[in-house]
């Protein structure tokens, strides 16, 4: 009933496509983080002129589907003569650049909101204490607020990373042969959609598990202070052998 031979036969292509997916994910996440950090700080700022433009940006990026954003950048911009004549065309003519740009802006907007939320959740007392010690605003941000905010943001960010992994499948709509693109071509060649798409679904699943595992390690390392205390309560008062 099922024919998984074709999947085995095309494993090299699938591996190549998996690498493409990972590259899309890695580059857009990295660039997105670079964009998101200043935007997140600005978004959490009390100064309206700083926070408001970022609110507009994240509102637009989070309020429209990533597929539409990708089509606007890839097909939409190419419609205009002045874009095609411009110096930027070598970049915008590349499907890779357009996909990475759309993904970066999208994940940048979501991540900025995650960071802003984590910054806002900083206990006011910590900030006040730092101020009273005479730290400048910049020092408070870099020494007190950001280190704890970035930790707090970790669980929400792990969700964003996994959503982005799945989001990269949209690259297949603009001629990039990522995992989903490879599945489409496998399907087109063999007319076996179940096997083709199941194979890449499994690969996505494995990648997701790997990412979840990585984040669990990171959380164990950086969010240790939020977990249950590791001390033995028995040692506190009852045990006579408590040497310390």
């Amino acid at each position: 009933m099922f024919n998984f031979e074709i999947v085995i036969d095309s494993l090299p292509e699938l591996a190549q496509a998996g690498w493409v997916t990972l590259q899309l994910l890695g580059v857009s996440l990295l660039a997105g983080l670079v964009v998101a950090l200043p935007l997140g700080i600005a978004r959490a700022s009390d100064r309206r002129w700083l926070a408001w433009p970022v609110w507009c940006f994240t509102y637009v990026m989070r309020g429209t589907p990533m597929l539409v954003q990708l089509f606007l950048i890839y097909y939409g911009l190419a419609q205009f003569e002045f874009v095609r004549e411009s110096m930027l065309w070598p970049w915008f003519s590349s499907a890779w650049f357009c996909a990475l740009l759309a993904f970066t802006l999208n994940t940048g907007a979501y991540t900025a909101e995650i960071i802003a939320g984590a910054i806002r959740a900083t206990p006011a007392g910590e900030v006040e204490a730092a101020r009273s010690l005479g730290m400048s605003a910049w020092r408070v941000m870099s020494r007190i607020v950001l280190p704890s905010a970035m930790r707090r943001a970790l669980p929400a960010y792990s969700n964003e990373v996994i959503m982005m992994l799945h989001g990269t499948s949209l690259a297949s709509t603009v001629t990039i042969v990522d995992l989903t693109g490879a599945a489409r071509e496998l399907n087109a060649r063999t007319y076996l959609p179940f096997e083709s798409f199941l194979a890449v679904a499994l690969i996505y699943l494995v990648l997701t598990f790997a990412l979840v595992g990585l984040f669990r390690l990171a959380e164990r390392r950086w969010l240790r202070h939020l977990g249950p205390r590791q001390t033995q309560p028995a040692a506190v008062g009852l045990a006579p052998s408590g040497a310390t």
């Binding site: 097909y75 190419a78 419609q79 095609r84 065309w89 003519s93 499907a95 709509t173 001629t175 489409r184």
Partner: peptide, 14 residues
């Protein structure tokens, strides 16, 4: 996926 998209990218010089 669609012939229309081929035309779009042919016209834009991709």
């Amino acid at each position: 996926t669609k012939q229309d998209e081929v035309f779009l990218d042919l016209a834009s010089g991709r």
